[in-house]
C-alpha cells in the first residue's frame, strides 16, 4: 500500500467533508435555486451576486472572514460560546461550514438554470392534472431538472474535495480532525516526500476525471431524450 496511515485518515476526512457539504448544499440549495429560478423579486440580482462571490474571491479572503466570524471573538464564535459550545474555527464543523459557503455557487447555479429551463408550462399542465404544488415539484420539476442535479452534486462534491485555501485558513492542519488530502499533499511536497505526494495527487486527478466523465456522459444521454 502506497498510502500511509495519516494519508488514509486525511482521505477519509476529505470524503466525509465533501459528502456532508454536498448533502447540506442540496438540502439548502434546492429550495433556494427553485425560488431564484421562479421569483420576480426586484432585488434577486443582489442575492445572485452574493452566491456567486466564492467563484471570484481568492479562497484566502473567504477563509479569512470565516476565521474571524467563527473564531472566539467573531459573532458566530461568541454565539457558540454563549450557548456553551466552543468556537468553530479549527474544527471539522467549521470546515464543513466553510466548504458549504465556498462550494455554494457550484450547486445553486446548475440547479437554478435547470429549474429555469423547465419553465412554467409543464407545472401549469400538472396543475390542471390535479397535482398540488409540492406534488408538481417532485414529479415534474425535479425529474425534468435531473441533469442539473447531477451536475450540482458532482461539481459540489469535486470542488469541495479540491479546496485548499479556505481549509487552510479556518481548518488549520490538525491531523485526524481537519487535515484533508489537498493539505496533506502540500505537506508532503514541503517535506520533499514526492512519492506520497504523487500517489495522493494522482489518485485525486483520476477520481476527479472519472466523476466529470460520468456527468458529461449521463447528461448527454438525458439530453437525447428531450424533444
Amino acid at each position: 500500500m502506497m498510502l500511509s496511515e495519516p494519508d488514509l485518515t486525511a482521505l477519509a476526512i476529505t470524503l466525509k467533508m465533501a459528502l456532508l457539504t454536498t448533502l447540506i448544499l442540496l438540502l439548502l440549495g434546492t429550495p433556494l435555486a427553485w425560488w431564484l429560478a421562479r421569483t420576480r423579486w426586484r432585488f434577486k440580482f443582489l442575492l445572485e451576486a452574493v452566491i456567486a462571490l466564492p467563484l471570484v474571491l481568492p479562497p484566502t479572503v473567504l477563509g479569512f472572514y470565516l476565521l474571524i466570524a467563527l473564531g472566539p471573538h467573531g459573532p458566530v464564535g461568541e454565539l457558540m460560546e454563549s450557548l456553551g459550545g466552543r468556537p468553530l474555527a479549527f474544527t471539522f464543523t467549521g470546515l464543513v461550514i466553510g466548504s458549504v459557503i465556498y462550494s455554494m455557487p457550484f450547486v445553486i447555479q446548475p440547479l437554478q438554470s435547470a429549474f429555469a429551463a423547465v419553465g412554467r408550462r409543464p407545472l401549469e399542465v400538472a396543475a390542471t392534472l390535479r397535482a398540488s404544488p409540492l406534488d408538481r415539484f417532485f414529479t415534474i420539476a425535479v425529474p425534468l431538472a435531473r441533469h442539473g442535479f447531477l451536475t450540482a452534486v458532482v461539481l459540489g462534491f469535486a470542488h469541495t474535495v479540491g479546496e485548499f485555501g479556505v481549509v487552510l485558513m479556518i481548518g488549520g492542519n490538525i491531523p485526524g480532525e481537519t487535515q484533508v488530502v489537498s493539505i496533506a499533499i502540500y505537506d508532503h511536497v514541503e517535506g520533499l516526500d514526492y512519492t506520497h505526494a504523487h500517489w495522493l495527487s494522482g489518485g485525486l486527478l483520476l477520481a476527479s476525471f472519472l466523476m466529470l466523465m460520468v456527468v458529461y456522459a449521463i447528461n448527454r444521454r438525458f439530453r437525447s431524450f428531450q424533444p
Partner: peptide, 20 residues
C-alpha cells in the same frame, strides 16, 4: 379554488407533454 382542485381539463396551444 386553486387549479389542481378544479375538475377541469386544459389543452394548451403547444401539447406540452411531460418529456420525461
Amino acid at each position: 379554488i386553486p387549479p389542481h382542485r378544479r375538475p377541469l381539463g386544459y389543452v394548451f396551444q403547444e401539447a406540452s407533454l411531460f418529456a420525461h
